[in-house]
Nucleic acid binder design. Structure first.
Lengths: 138, 138
DNA sequence: TTTCATTTTAGTAATCGTTACAAATACAAA
DNA sequence: TTTGTATTTGTAACGATTACTAAAATGAAA
């Protein structure tokens, strides 16, 4: 069992973000529940800990985190945005049945394209859709 | 110059979709302007040809086309949905500057992942962000 | 062709996620 | 403390999409 070492405040300070109660709570939530949550899921969950927290703060903070590179945003199905604490390149698999989002590692270098040789590629997004192993058994 | 052979009505019939004026106009637009348009762009453009056309019809029809596999949907940046007449697997590159969306071919088989070996993959989406060759010159 | 049932369209209202904005609060430095 | 700045909150506004209903078009049967 690998313990997760979490220094929320340190991470925020490193990114020049002042560690307010709300920001700490949001980053902590993202670090502990690595589940690509929606803004609403974060909001609903954090209301227990920080009852006065508002949706605006959730959005503001997530935008701030994303701009600082602390998190990444993903828009998978054209509906709500999702927020990912893992910033290293990886793919996402979304199960059509249970809607769970799985991470998977990938070797992005293998996806090359001559057509883009004169383009400056800043970011790559890969996601797959299908049925996950668990749902296939049912 | 390769002429584009377009049999709109035939394509619709093949998919068991009744070729109404509106449906023909929408599919024709998508075939001629292979530019990943938004619903609104299609709507605005088609008002000249079919003045009574409504947004509802645009959305209904695009949904219908997507379900029939005539087109593919792409949600690139979490804002509006875009519609792609090209259904063969390919990647999309979106330029941060001019917002143009470029297609590029790819060898999807190269992206493999052991972690997904028990998953049923139905669909793969790949898109890159960056600056296109044209904008890099400015 | 007329009738009738079904499909398709149009138009409007409603919804949902997100953003904008202004007032209130918290914070930090002087 | 006081003062200025950053942050949060709550509400209103927004934009894309969906839901819904009535009207129109279509096709089949008589």
């Amino acid at each position: 069992m690998k313990p997760i070492y979490i220094d929320i405040i340190g991470d925020l300070k490193k990114s020049n973000i002042r560690p307010s109660i709300q920001r700490i709570a949001i980053l902590k939530y993202l670090k502990i529940n690595q589940s690509h949550p929606t803004a609403d899921q974060i909001y609903t969950h954090l209301q227990q800990q920080v009852p006065t927290i508002s949706k605006s703060t959730i959005y503001n903070t997530l935008d701030l985190f994303a701009e600082s590179g602390l998190i990444r945003t993903l828009s998978l199905e054209g509906n709500e945005m999702r927020y990912d604490i893992i910033t290293e390149p990886h793919g996402h698999f979304i199960c059509d049945q249970c809607r769970t989002i799985f991470n998977f590692s990938l070797t992005l270098d293998s996806i090359k394209s001559d057509e883009l040789k004169d383009f400056k590629i800043i970011d790559k997004t890969i996601y797959y859709k299908g049925i996950c192993a668990k749902c296939l058994l049912v």
